[in-house]
């Protein structure tokens, strides 16, 4: 959070720049989806752009860049558990035995 008015003005200028960047990234995301790229490429690109947009919102609009460490630590736990949540369904698709096990007597 801004401590003084000069710092606040800087923050507002940064937020307006971020706003323009978010609009441009939205246009890019939609444009890429019309390129008829292969599905894995479309998913990767769309998620990468969404990650950049999300990081900008969290860092500047929610001013996490200048936030106290206690909040950052709490949120890092959230990030870890969120990643686990996303990886879990993918892991369920990997339970295919792909090699032969030889048992010796």
């Amino acid at each position: 959070m801004a401590e003084n008015l000069e710092e606040l003005d800087q923050h507002i200028r940064a937020c307006i720049a971020i706003f323009v960047a978010l609009l441009c990234l939205t246009v890019i995301t939609v444009a890429v989806s019309y390129l008829n790229l292969p599905v894995p490429a479309t998913i990767t690109l769309a998620l990468c752009v969404a990650l950049v947009k999300g990081s900008l919102v969290v860092s500047y609009f929610m001013h996490l860049v200048s936030e106290k460490k206690l909040i950052l630590w709490s949120l890092s736990l959230t990030v870890i558990f969120f990643i686990i949540l996303m990886v879990l369904p993918v892991v369920t698709d990997l339970d295919v035995i792909s090699h032969t096990i030889t048992v010796k007597h």
Partner: peptide, 17 residues
């Protein structure tokens, strides 16, 4: 802002992929 953030991920996930 969180509501905005969620939509930023919902939009490509549901509409564009």
């Amino acid at each position: 802002h969180l509501v905005d953030l969620v939509w930023i991920f919902l939009f490509p996930t549901l509409y564009l992929m």
